[in-house]
Design a protein around this nucleic acid. Structure first.
Length: 270
DNA sequence: CCGTTGCCCTGCCAGC
DNA sequence: TGCTGGCAGGGCAACG
């Protein structure tokens, strides 16, 4: 499930691989997965574009194009964005293929077809509603405090809300709350002082360590080279129902918050 | 405005 | 063995 660390890993891999390449041809095999602004044809608009940069914003891979347009990719749960050598076989469920000038291909595959590519006009403020990047300087204690203040929603639900903080998904929400020793159901606004600062630092720490280990592969995730991540071996709570807490030994519990499975330690998360 | 619920979609797996 | 139902979940729409 690509979240911030996985998307960051993919974006870094793509940056090395495809910046400077030109898009020669585009094949869309499932039209709903390749969206363009009104009046534009996705394939025709991309044909001939140069790839100038690859960035990440929240859980989106952002490919900056010569025209000033941008190609966004949202991988959702099972999406893959992989660079393939000439003649290499398709991944299963490959739905959009960009043929590059050097013969390689950028393939977008997704078994569950929840993922999307979306072409964005140069001046479109597509990320106006998305919250601050937790690994940037602007994610200060003061800013985090303002985001949590007076919110009665469970802190776990708030962390998953991309309008509040960018890039955190279910795995890293669970892991950050465990590291900070905070119960996932706690009202966001009840976190103040040291607990709130512990959570902010835990979010940053967990995301940075996960990026170092090239993300978490639970089942599907692979990076731009098709390689699995390593952080699944460092998970403290996610998916560990009934196993011992790494801090206190009591069994990890599972509940549902905001419609998502939530793993946590009833003993040391308060 | 705010917060919650349901839907999209397929693969996997426990249970019968 | 083969089927079925439940679960996995990011982002969005609909609802109260």
């Amino acid at each position: 499930m690509p979240e911030l660390p996985e998307v960051e890993t993919i974006a870094r891999g793509l940056r090395r691989a495809i910046v400077g390449a030109q898009i020669l041809a585009v094949e869309v095999r499932k039209p709903k997965m390749a969206q363009a602004p009104a009046g534009l044809d996705f394939s025709a608009a991309l044909r001939g574009e140069c790839i100038e940069a690859v960035e990440r914003r929240a859980k989106y891979v952002v490919i900056a194009l010569g025209s000033g347009r941008r190609l966004l990719t949202s991988l959702r749960m099972t999406g893959r964005l992989v660079v393939q050598a000439p003649g290499e076989r398709d991944f299963p469920a490959t739905y959009v293929v960009l043929d590059l000038s050097d013969g390689r291909r950028l393939a977008f595959a997704d078994t569950r077809t929840f993922g999307r590519m979306r072409l964005i006009e140069p001046n479109e403020a597509w990320d106006a509603e998305i919250g601050p990047e937790p690994l940037e300087r602007a994610f200060t204690g003061e800013r985090f405090g303002a985001i949590l203040a007076k919110r009665r929603t469970p802190i776990k639900a708030l962390l998953l809300d991309q309008r509040r903080v960018a890039g955190i998904g279910n795995i890293y929400a669970c892991e950050s709350l465990w590291l900070a020793g905070i119960r996932p159901s706690r009202p966001a606004g009840s976190l103040r002082g040291p607990a709130r600062e512990r959570l902010r630092r835990s979010i940053i720490d967990v995301l940075e360590r996960a990026i170092e280990m090239r993300g978490t592969t639970v089942d599907d995730y692979v990076d731009a080279e098709g390689l699995k991540g390593g952080f699944q071996n460092a998970l403290a709570v996610y998916g560990r129902l009934g196993e011992g807490c790494l801090r206190c030994g009591s069994p990890i519990r599972r509940t549902v918050i905001a419609g998502r499975g939530t793993w946590w330690c009833g003993q040391c998360q308060r």
